[in-house]
Amino acid sequence: MSIDIKNICYTYMRGTPFEKKALDDVSVSIDKGEIVAVIGHTGSGKSTLVQHLNGLLRPDAGQVAVDGISLAGKDAAAKKARQLVGMVFQYPEHQIFAETVYEDIAFGPRNRGFEPEEVDKQVREAMAFVGLDFETFARRSPFRLSGGQMRRVAIAGVVAMNPDYLVLDEPSAGLDPRSRNAVFKEIMALHKSRGIAIVLVTHSMEEAVKYAKRMLVINQGRILFDGNPADIFKNHQQKLVEVGMDEPQVFKLAALLRKQGMELPQGITDDVTLLQMIKKAKGWR
């Protein structure tokens, strides 16, 4: 089971003076169960790429297939394949529209043609997943919730469609650190319990290295790097800065400590390990 992208090209405003080639012969496969971070500067083509994953954009050339079914078709099979891929856009709370939290989350599964009992089950499960108590929140207006809560409602709406692949475009933008951690805790739980593939578009190098096993670096409409985030950050630091990216804070601090003479092993990717290694290097217990 996978999403397979083969040689796709996409140009915005073709035939106008503003014509811009956003994707240039991109091929990539994402397997079910993977967590893939997608990074790249604004305008690199990363959002354009992920919008091909559920057929929202159609490539000018090349193919996109979900579980072997081409998204190009207009038949029922292609429609079903597109629905396997859930998409949470930037600031998803701006897409909330219904009068109650329940109705907002139920919109997707109903649209997918689920039976009423199934819709109810999906809504309840989705709310539990994102940490919204059913009794407290189901009948409330989503517009009276806090920013973090609204974002959870929006994510629940996509989760309730029971997708096999979930694309999240900067799910933590504008959230404080605590809410950021909470949203990611839920996303990771979803990944674990349902085996959903997660495609995470992010501007945060920390998130990429913390949550993803694989990272795509997009630049000028092409995939510049595809591999383990820690390896990419370690091996291509210079190039990443050139394309407007950065290093995670942990890498920066570890590199500085090494440069000043501390003996630290390579490949430290989180705070806790760095702390342990500092203690070890200094002979502290």
Binding site: G40, H41, T42, Q90, E170, A173, G174, H203, M205, G244, M245, D246
Partner: peptide, 12 residues
Amino acid sequence: DEPTAMLDPQGR
């Protein structure tokens, strides 16, 4: 008010 919330590292 959070002028960099939507920006990439370079933009920030």
